[in-house]
Structures are given as C-alpha cells and as structure tokens.
Amino acid sequence: MHLESISTRVSPILRRPGFQATVESAFSEAVNLVTPAGAALALVSRRIGNGPLNAVVSHFQVLASLLHPGDTIHGDGAALSLGQDWRLALAPAADWDPHPDYSILARRPRVVAGNLDWLRHHLLLEAPPTSLAAPRPAVTPGAFSGPPASVRIQMHAGELIDGLKDAQSRGDLNQVAALASRLAGLGPGLTPAGDDWLAGWLVGLRAAAAMDDEDRPLAVNAVAQAVVDSARARTSRLSLAFLQAAADGAVAQAWHALLAALPDADPMPLHRAAAEIMHHGATSGSDMLAGFLVAPFPAFP
C-alpha cells in the first residue's frame, strides 16, 4: 500500500517531516483529513482519482477499513502512519498539478461554444432534480425538509445566482461578495450545493477569460478572492478548501478532461468527462457544472 500521486497543492504538507492530521470524515472512496493548522486534504481511491486536495492511495479499501474519524495520522517525510498498524510510503507518489491549461480553450473558440451549448442542454436533461442545475421549481415549498427543502434551496439559490450574474456583468465586486456570502454554505450536505456552484462559477470565469482578450468588467482573481473571503466562516472546512482551490483555478482530473475536451470536435471525450463530473457526489458535480456554464463565455452566431 502506497501513495500513487499527490496534488502539488497538498504535497508539501504531506511530505513535511512532523506532519500530523486528524481524520475528519470517512466515506467509501475518500477519507478527509484536517491538520492542526486547519488545512484540509483527502486520501482517496483510484476511482476518485486526482483532485486539488487529493492523495491517491493504492488499495484504498484496505486503508479505509483501518481509518476512522478522530484517528490521528503522522508523517515523517518518508511515510504516513497510524500507530503501528500501517505505513503509507510517500516516495512512489508522483506530484500532480491540479491547474489545467485554460489557454487551450482559445484555440478553437467556435468548437468550444458548440460544446458548451451541448453541455447546457445535457445538464438540463440529466442533472438530478434536487441539484441547482435542475430547472427552477414552479411550486411553493410547504416545509423545510424532504423534497420541499431541496425546492426551497433551489429557489433561494436561483435568486442569488441571478443577482451574482448581474453583479459580475456590472463589475460590482461588493455586490458579488454580498451575494456569494449568502450562497456559500447553502445546502445540507458535506459540500453544500451553493459552494459547489460557486466553485464551478469561478472555474467558468477563468475559462471564459482565457477565451478572449477583451477587458472584463472584473478581473477573475479579484472575484475569486472576494468569493473565498465571503465564504470564510460560512461553510465547512472541507468545502471552503475546495472553494479556495477552485478560486485558484485548481480542479479535479475530470475537470481537466472536460477542459481538454471542450475544444475537441470529437464529442466522445466531452461526453465521458461530463458523465464523470456529474457522477461526483449526490449533486455536487452537477451543481459545479451548472456554475461553470453560467460564466460569460464568448457567444458565436
């Protein structure tokens, strides 16, 4: 059992002698860790694969059966360990850069535009009904639980998203921050839907900016910083770490595949990447994709 690859975002932390982290939560394909300094990272299976906070573990299922929330993991620079039970060698792990090459989108902007249209249509058809990608509900919720809870969240998020688009197009950074702070942490689960949407939106803004040379009303980095600042203390540690990564342009390998597929005239890589993204989490992947597609990409007749 060893680490196969580590995101460059967390590699220096994991490889540091004296590393220590606590298992914060454990799922079938990922174990989430938090360091005493508050840094979040994850040990994941090959199926989850590379991501901005991820270290991919060979034979993850064996490791997962040994780790439980509250356990403390130590590292000596050569390996991670939990007591005498197991050691995870660090040396075999290759560093993986979570920052994709956004500039490739500028090479074939018309193909990208066509593929984005397909993606919007596909998401509308295939997204889970409780995700923010689903069409706006027409009913008024009666209670804050069960399906009405998701409807209430969708309706509330929908208003905030409309406001964010408007504020971004007008270059109103204060309004972006105000609305993002209300969207951050919205949704019941581990990574709330509002955070997933914001992460996708920030990636989309970066991708859109890469496609044209025109001056944008707001610089992507300024928007990203405003969103992260406004989300701080308004969402869980892990979710904030994902949002921070997205703000820096760092995304999971499925997103690398999607960005690489967008300028490709062959539809299959795009279909595969979209399916993989939408398969992530209960609604997380679809929520993030919905945010991505709202970004102001250049239009072509």
């Binding site: 804050f144 639980s145 069960g146 809870a149 919205l186 949704g187 019941p188 581990l190 709330p192 308004r234």
Partner: peptide, 25 residues
Amino acid sequence: AKELLAMPRVQDAAVVMGTPANLAL
C-alpha cells in the same frame, strides 16, 4: 429529514449542516 416528517405528529424537520445560509432557511 423525509423519514422524520413521516413520523407521528411531526410537522416539519430540518437536517442540515449549521452554515449561516442553512440557519437562515
């Protein structure tokens, strides 16, 4: 949350992370 709502005499229920956005809802 749905299971809780189905229990006798339960009128409403919330099961969410305690983020400010969720607390506002």
